[in-house]
């Protein structure tokens, strides 16, 4: 029976416009609405699918954030067996190096055969979480995965390449996989089931022993894209426009 750990996080929801904090070094977190990282949601779906197919035990680990409990209860309603919330000084958000160390520490005691996580997230300033966790746990990592089959102590993983090519490879377990897409899209669970879980399921809260951001990047300045004045509207009738275009192409060395 495979022991599967899904490591997931909440990220800024782009339905709201993002605001920069006063220091100009990051997002204004007071205004942020958070949502589960879409790729992580696929990782959860893949974990549940594996459990349903081959039997297994699914543990979901997520750092504390606004809305994280609702998200964890939803995964419980989907079929996750254990939900862990990592608590610590996360108010200003932690970089992925710090999170990956915390994830690795939290996942270790469960002796996972497979660790699944989203291949990327919209707030990955210092690289995705998956390879970092693999490094800290000394496990192999394969990213951009869109299908997983477990066979004994190996997993056959499918990875998409540009041009519609699909590669199949074998990886020895335990391993970390960066999920691009689950084999099925994330399922819907009725709110009544989620509410039921809120009454019966428990979230295990674990304190992060140390948030160590070493190795990450430091954002010196964060700002909204500044509109560049590079566009020039060419006016006139067809003849004039054509003549102007030819002149521009010549100047640019294209003719």
């Amino acid at each position: 029976m495979a022991k599967i750990v899904a490591i997931v996080k909440m990220v800024p929801d782009l339905v709201e416009e993002l605001e920069i904090n006063e220091a100009g070094t990051g997002l204004d977190r007071d205004w942020l609405r958070l949502i589960i990282n879409e790729f992580d949601n696929h990782a959860i779906e893949q974990a549940i699918l594996l459990k349903e197919r081959d039997a297994g035990e699914v543990t979901v680990i997520a750092p504390d954030a606004e809305g994280v409990e609702d998200m964890l209860f939803t995964t419980a309603a989907k079929g996750a067996d254990r939900m862990i919330k990592l608590a610590g000084d996360l108010e200003e958000g932690a970089n992925n190096h710090a999170l990956a160390r915390a994830f690795a520490e939290a996942a270790k005691p469960y002796q996972p055969d497979l660790i699944l996580t989203g291949v990327q997230a919209n707030d990955d300033l210092d690289g995705p979480v998956g390879p970092l966790v693999a490094e800290y746990l000394g496990m192999p990592y394969v990213g951009y995965i869109s299908g997983v089959t477990i066979e004994g102590n190996k997993a056959i993983v499918r990875k998409e390449y540009p041009g519609g090519l699909i590669g199949e490879m074998e990886v020895t377990l335990p391993a970390v996989l960066g999920i691009q897409a689950g084999e099925e899209p994330p399922r819907y669970v009725a709110i009544s089931k989620v509410r039921q879980m809120m009454k019966t399921a428990e979230i295990d809260e674990q304190e992060i022993s140390e948030l160590n951001p070493n190795g990450g990047v430091i954002a010196k300045r964060m700002y909204l894209p500044e509109a560049a004045k590079r566009a020039e509207m060419i006016e006139g009738d067809e003849e004039e426009i054509a003549a102007k275009l030819v002149a521009i192409f010549k100047k640019a060395g294209a003719l």
Binding site: A190, I191, S192, K193, V194, R195
Partner: peptide
């Protein structure tokens, strides 16, 4: 069919 959502 989403009665729970309606109630929420």
């Amino acid at each position: 069919g989403e009665r729970g959502l309606f109630e929420m």
